[in-house]
Design a protein around this nucleic acid. Structure first.
Ligand SMILES: [Zn+2]
Ligand SMILES: [Zn+2]
Ligand SMILES: [Zn+2]
Ligand SMILES: [Zn+2]
Lengths: 131, 131
DNA sequence: TTATTAATGTTATATTATTACATAATGTTA
DNA sequence: TAACATTATGTAATAATATAACATTAATAA
């Protein structure tokens, strides 16, 4: 039950741009950059972003209101995501750790709530910025 | 090395209001509600929120741009936070689980990055909404 | 006291995201 | 195919969230 094979034109334009970037991108900076490709309004970008998040091609870094391409081939849907964020240079990396994802996916606490999704953001200083 | 003992007037007004609420509150809804107490501008609310987050009295739910009072007496600073969020009724509960917090605080991956902070948000359906 | 830091008040503005509505493209079923 | 439903688009307007800039006052420290 794949979610969607074919991306529409706008979705592809936005995805291409995000995939080329080495850093998280904000919606309006994407908008500015894809104007030459015919995308004119915020809503066109937000709609593409929503869909790309839904199918797991990109993830939203909630604490930064920014978007990154999924670097983890396993993420077919954005339902179990973890990132490490450098508070100095704002570099963001998707954490891909099987033990962690298993631990969190199976996590259950006293609330009796069954979780079907999580997002985890780690903060610290990256190798470069630690020096 | 306590961070701050004494809250200023604005900080106290905002904190009181958040503590009374059973649900996460957004900055502008706080602003609207504390106008009768002399707080007039967004920045006054945002400054109070910033400080309250910094000293761990409240936490920001990043995926919702909303704020909740800390329910975990251990949180002196907002550096290791976890929440469960009902995607139906938007109820938010602070997860207080020693094993989880130890696991995440000690987490290290191949990136070699040392984390000094994290925020985790679980999503699902709460007991009520599951019925 | 003097200097320094932290908080405040106020206005304006920047940034992020959605509503509303009309239209077009695509997929499904008969 | 025709009829219908679903999904995506285009466009304009506006809502919601957050910060910059600057003047002033209060609290702390030397
Ligand atoms: Zn991913
Ligand atoms: Zn860094
Ligand atoms: Zn707490
Ligand atoms: Zn619920």
């Amino acid at each position: 039950m794949q979610k969607q094979e074919h991306l529409t034109k706008n979705q592809q334009i936005v995805l291409d741009f995000i995939e080329k970037s080495s850093e998280p991108l904000k919606a309006y900076s994407i908008l500015f950059s894809v104007k030459k490709q015919g995308i004119k309004a915020p809503l066109q970008v937000y709609r593409a972003l929503d869909k790309l998040v839904e199918i797991g091609k990109i993830h939203k870094i909630e604490s930064r209101n920014a978007f990154v391409a999924c670097k983890n081939s396993n993420c077919q849907v954005s339902k179990a995501t973890a990132f490490s964020i450098c508070e100095s240079c704002e570099d963001v990396t998707e954490v891909s750790n099987l033990k962690l994802s298993k631990y969190l996916s199976n996590f259950a606490d006293k609330s009796g709530m069954k979780y079907n999704k999580y997002n985890l953001e780690f903060f610290g200083l990256c190798k470069n910025c630690k020096k």
